[in-house]
Amino acid sequence: MSPAPVSRWTAARLAEKAAEIVSDQELPPIVQAGHPVLRTQAIPFDGQLDDALLTALIEVMRRTMHAAPGVGLAAPQIGLPLRLAVVEDMWAPDEDVVRMRNRTPLPFFAVLNPAYAPLGNERAAFYEGCLSVRGYTAVVRRPARIEARWTTPGGATRRAEFAGWQARILQHETDHLAGTLYLDKAEVRSLCTNEEYSARWAHPTPEAAARELGF
Rank of each mutant, 00 (worst) to 15 (best):
H35N: 06
F108S: 01
V71W: 09
R101F: 01
A33K: 15
I30F: 00
T151S: 06
A68D: 10
A148N: 06
A144P: 02
S132E: 07
T104Q: 14
P76K: 02
Q32C: 08
V139K: 04
R103H: 05
V86I: 07
Q77W: 05
P29E: 02
P36V: 07
A52M: 02
L80E: 12
M61T: 03
A138K: 03
H66Q: 15
R149I: 06
D51Q: 15
Q32K: 06
L53S: 05
A68R: 11
R83W: 01
A138M: 05
A56E: 14
E88Y: 10
L53H: 00
L119N: 13
A42F: 05
G120I: 01
P76R: 02
C130E: 02
R101D: 10
P114M: 00
V71M: 11
L119P: 00
Q41F: 01
L49P: 03
P81V: 01
A52E: 13
T104K: 14
G72A: 03
R103F: 05
F45C: 11
R141N: 11
V139L: 02
P114D: 08
F126V: 09
P114T: 02
N113K: 09
P44I: 02
D89P: 11
A52N: 14
G72F: 01
I146Q: 04
G154A: 08
D96K: 14
W91K: 15
Q77V: 05
A42V: 13
T137D: 05
F109T: 13
R141C: 12
G79M: 10
Q77F: 09
N121W: 10
R123G: 05
T55E: 07
P76E: 05
G70P: 04
L106R: 02
G47T: 08
P76D: 00
L80W: 09
Q48N: 01
P28M: 05
W150Q: 11
A125L: 12
H66P: 05
L57S: 09
L82N: 09
M61C: 06
Y136F: 15
M90V: 15
I58Q: 12
A56F: 01
E147G: 03
E88H: 10
V37E: 04
A85L: 10
Q41W: 09
E147Q: 12
L57T: 04
Q48V: 12
Y127R: 11
A115N: 13
A52Q: 08
H35L: 01
G34Y: 08
V111W: 08
L84Y: 02
V98S: 02
Q77P: 14
R134K: 14
I30M: 01
P81W: 04
T40G: 04
L84F: 07
V60I: 13
F126W: 15
A85I: 00
T64Q: 08
P107N: 08
W91H: 11
A74L: 04
R142G: 06
D96R: 13
M65R: 07
P93R: 10
A117Y: 09
V37P: 07
V133P: 03
M100D: 15
L131T: 03
A85M: 06
I58V: 03
P107K: 12
R134Q: 14
P69N: 08
A110W: 00
I78G: 01
G72L: 02
W91G: 14
W150S: 07
E122V: 14
L38S: 03
A144L: 12
V31N: 10
Y116C: 06
D46I: 05
G155N: 06
R141T: 15
F108A: 11
R62W: 06
P105K: 12
M65H: 01
M61S: 10
A67R: 13
S132G: 10
T55N: 04
Q41G: 08
